[in-house]
């Protein structure tokens, strides 16, 4: 890499000036503003220049906030677990199949990413609401008299989000699984391991970083998702994200809204740290 590695420093920063300016003004500064706002008092959307921890005290003690945070964690865990569980067989199939449709099947499995999460959630509303597909079917079969209250509920939020985020888990797991040579499975079998033991001793341990990665990715997107909880949940099933929207846009209490957002930032950074910890143990061979 002679001549490429160094480059001229002055020229480099000239080229980087514009992207850096954009990222600093529209990403770094707003986040700093948000963090500082979370330590201020506010009256409506006007902040009062006075340091306070009240906002955090509020959100850590209020039942509404604690309920929402707990629900958000449950949603994250449920979505993460459901997604790696569903994505694993699909990713394994897509990596190992020799079908001539392989390319198409992979494209199809990722295609939902092209649809806004609203499109993907709308269908679940149609399926789960009081007069939705499930209730109609069950009533038609005479299995229930009254429609089931399938939504709004935390379960509906988990299913909707798991559905929306599945492609992320599939991508992560495919990357992990495609790094496992099929010869390793063959080798295990020639050494006397049954298919099940091959899976447990070879495939599973080697795909563990992918499983963790997929779980963490889905978890972290799920805890900050707004649209799905807003559509499939209700006032009784608030998550942190829907609360942030309520406080910012409806109640205009920006200080509390900012403190809630700061909690999401903290959670995201913690997850990143955990993921890199768990991931690096496996890759640092």
């Amino acid at each position: 890499m002679i001549g490429i590695g160094e480059g001229r420093s002055g020229l480099r920063w000239l080229v980087l000036a514009l992207p850096c300016a954009v990222l600093i003004s529209f990403f770094a500064v707003p986040n700093v503003l948000l963090l500082s706002a979370s330590f201020m008092r506010s009256e409506a959307s006007v902040l009062i220049d006075e340091f306070t921890l009240d906002n955090y005290q509020d959100i850590l003690s209020g039942a509404l906030f604690r309920g929402a945070m707990l629900r958000t964690v449950i949603v994250g865990l449920g979505v993460g677990a459901l997604d790696v569980l569903i994505a694993f067989p699909l990713a394994y199939f897509l990596v190992r199949t020799q079908s001539r449709w392989k390319g198409l099947l992979i494209a199809l499995s990722l295609a939902p990413l092209l649809a806004s999460v609203i499109v993907r959630t709308y269908g679940w509303y149609v399926i789960l609401n009081r007069s939705g597909a499930i209730n109609q079917t069950l009533q038609g079969l005479g299995m229930i008299d009254q429609p089931l209250a399938l939504m709004p509920s935390t379960g509906a939020i988990i299913i909707g989000l798991a559905h929306a985020l599945l492609p992320y888990a599939v991508l992560t797991l495919m990357t992990a699984l495609s790094a496992i040579s099929p010869n390793l499975e063959l080798a295990a079998m020639t050494l006397g391991a049954s298919r099940w033991r091959t899976f447990v001793h070879v495939v599973l341990p080697l795909s563990l970083p992918g499983l963790i990665g997929g779980f963490v990715l889905c978890f972290s997107i799920a805890i900050s998702a707004y649209a799905t909880p807003a559509i499939l949940g209700g006032p009784a099933t608030q998550t942190v994200a829907t609360l942030i929207y309520t406080f910012m846009m409806n109640l205009l209490d920006w200080a509390v809204g900012s403190a809630l957002a700061a909690v999401l930032i903290a959670a995201s950074l913690l997850l990143l740290y955990l993921a890199s910890k768990l991931g690096s143990q496996r890759t640092a061979l």
Partner: peptide, 11 residues
Amino acid sequence: MLPALVTGVGL
């Protein structure tokens, strides 16, 4: 790395 929602609130 940070949720888009948070970036929206910040902006």
